Amino acid sequence: MEITADHLLSNAIELARAAAIDEARASGLPYEGELVGEHLGVEVDGERFLTHLFRTGLSGYRDWRWAVTLTRADEDTSSEATVCDVVLLPGPDALLAPKWIPYHERIQAGDLTPGVIVPTSHDDARLTPGYAALPGDEELDMAQLLELGLGRERVLSAFGRDATSQRWYRGDFGPEAQMAKAAPLPCAACAFFIPMAGSMRSVFGVCANEISPADGHVVSIDHGCGAHSQAQVI
């Protein structure tokens, strides 16, 4: 059911304006022209409960408006309007601060420099408690799992491994890289290819050829480059 604006409250524009002026003066903020400008309208908040909007003259507050909320006790015409609240609210074209992004989400690959700490949250989906890891997934030493307090507190979860695999596979050292497409043979057949341990062994390894741009990087078995060990046997 739509609530209609209370007639007495709607007409109490000067009461609302005076309240806004008092608040503007008390703020001590600089302003241009009028402290409280033209009346922009009303917003009905409930039965005998509405908000008057006024343009503000405060410097730097483009399209902000004073919002003065009024109410009255009952429907009796002798019931006077009362000021409930006076606040500054942004309009549709107001200049606002960017949405806050947590620090750990702002840091991107390449941002990490010496001394910078990037904490991981306790509920990071990429990680799982060490005791919950499957030995086959992480090549864990069973003796470490049985001895309380030994081993890593957290390891990659299945989600973390999948996300990592996809990122590596689609990256500069995966099969779709221009270097790989022009290579004579894949990394899997190269003597400089060192397979990884654990569950990623079947897809990834590390390049050990100092001539290759992939030297020291994780490469997929179907990556490749011109420095393949079998490119030319001398």
Rank of each mutant, 00 (worst) to 15 (best):
H122W: 08
Y169E: 13
R126C: 01
E139P: 00
H122K: 13
S157F: 00
T120D: 08
R170H: 12
R161N: 11
L145A: 09
V118G: 02
T113F: 08
D141R: 04
G174S: 11
L148C: 02
A158K: 05
E176W: 06
F159G: 01
Q178W: 06
P129S: 09
L127T: 03
V155D: 03
R154K: 05
A177H: 10
F173G: 01
G151L: 03
H122I: 07
P129R: 05
M142Q: 11
P135Y: 08
P135M: 08
L146C: 08
W168R: 08
Q144C: 12
T128Y: 02
M179T: 10
Y169N: 12
W168G: 04
L134A: 15
A125K: 03
L150D: 10
R154D: 02
I117Y: 15
W168Y: 12
L145V: 04
L140F: 04
D124T: 01
W168Q: 09
T120N: 07
F173D: 06
L127V: 06
I117R: 15
Q166P: 01
T113R: 15
F173R: 06
G115H: 13
A163I: 00
G160H: 02
L140I: 06
F159E: 11
V118T: 07
G115S: 15
D162K: 05
R170V: 05
I117H: 15
D162R: 09
T128E: 10
T128G: 02
Y131I: 09
F173K: 05
R154P: 00
P119C: 09
P114D: 11
Y131H: 07
M179E: 14
